[in-house]
Amino acid sequence: MITGAHTILYAEDAEAARAFFRDVLGLAYVDANDGWLIFKSPPAELAVHPSDVPDSGKAELYLMCDDLEATVDELRSKGVEFTSEVINAGWGLLTMLKVPGAGQIGLYQPRHATAYDLP
Rank of each mutant, 00 (worst) to 15 (best):
D66P: 04
L68T: 09
V99P: 05
T95V: 03
A59D: 02
T95D: 00
G79A: 10
W91N: 05
L97A: 04
L61C: 01
F82K: 07
E81F: 11
S84K: 04
L63T: 02
G101L: 10
P54W: 03
D67M: 07
K78Y: 07
D73Q: 15
S56A: 15
V53K: 14
V72L: 07
S51L: 01
G79I: 12
D52N: 10
T71M: 08
D52C: 11
K78W: 06
L75M: 15
G92Y: 10
K58Q: 09
L68W: 11
M96R: 15
L68S: 09
S77K: 15
G92M: 03
V72P: 09
M64Y: 13
S56Q: 14
K58R: 11
D52K: 10
E81R: 12
D73G: 11
G101V: 08
G57P: 04
L63F: 15
E60Q: 13
E69T: 11
G90L: 01
T95L: 01
A70R: 09
E85P: 05
E60N: 09
T95N: 02
K78P: 11
E74Q: 11
P100I: 01
E74T: 12
Y62Q: 11
D73W: 08
L68V: 04
T71N: 00
G90M: 00
R76L: 15
N88K: 02
A59L: 14
D66G: 13
K78E: 07
G101C: 09
C65A: 02
I87M: 13
G92P: 02
G90K: 03
L61T: 06
L63P: 04
L97I: 01
C65E: 09
G90E: 04
D55F: 12
M96I: 09
V80P: 05
L75T: 08
W91A: 10
G92L: 00
E69P: 02
E85A: 14
A89C: 00
E85W: 02
G57I: 06
T83Y: 10
A70W: 04
S56F: 14
S56P: 03
M96Y: 14
E81N: 10
R76H: 07
G57V: 02
P100G: 06
I87R: 06
S51I: 01
L63C: 04
G57L: 04
G57E: 03
L68C: 01
V99C: 00
L68E: 08
G92H: 08
Y62V: 14
L97M: 14
S77N: 15
S56H: 11
E60P: 00
S51K: 10
D73L: 12
G92F: 03
F82V: 10
L97R: 05
L97C: 03
G90Y: 05
L97Y: 07
M64L: 14
